[in-house]
Amino acid sequence: MAGPSVTKQVALFVNGKTYSLEIESRTTLAEALRERLDLTGTKVGCNRAECGTCTVLVDGRAVYSCTMLAVHAAGKNIQTIEGVAQAGKLDPLQQALMDEDGLQCGFCTPGMIMSLKALLNRKTDVSRRDVREAIAGNYCRCGAYPNIVEAVLKLGRNSSGAG
């Protein structure tokens, strides 16, 4: 067994790429993403698992990256906001948020998108309640919630309309 240590060698699997790095055990996933991998799309607001802007997906589930140790995310499938657009093309969810004014200052947006991706990856036919529940852990202090919810519901209607 490996005894306790202050630094560790870990492999982080982020947006389909593997990064091998030595990190301090105390490093949060948010710190590793932003400071070590330069993936600064993930924001840190409260740094206390309360505001939600640091939300990323770990094995498909939304988590607060500010309150997860990076060593606990090692070997898991991590997806950040940088992995949402594919080949330079916005994800339909991102486009819907732009079309419906689902953001104002934009600081909460990366976290909002990741929480909503976690929902839409499991369920396509979503209700208003589903959407509200999915972003219950994400604060938007501009108050863009109504447009965010509408954007997701409209997205659902459009994709089901397109068959």
Binding site: M1, A2, P4, V6, S25, T28, E31
Partner: peptide, 23 residues
């Protein structure tokens, strides 16, 4: 703010026995 968690040691216990002996 960066590194709000102070420097600390960390170990992954792979069994109850191992966790017990570390504790």
């Amino acid at each position: 703010m960066l590194n709000e968690i102070p420097r600390l040691e960390h170990a992954d216990a792979s069994s109850i026995e191992e966790a017990r002996s570390l504790l």
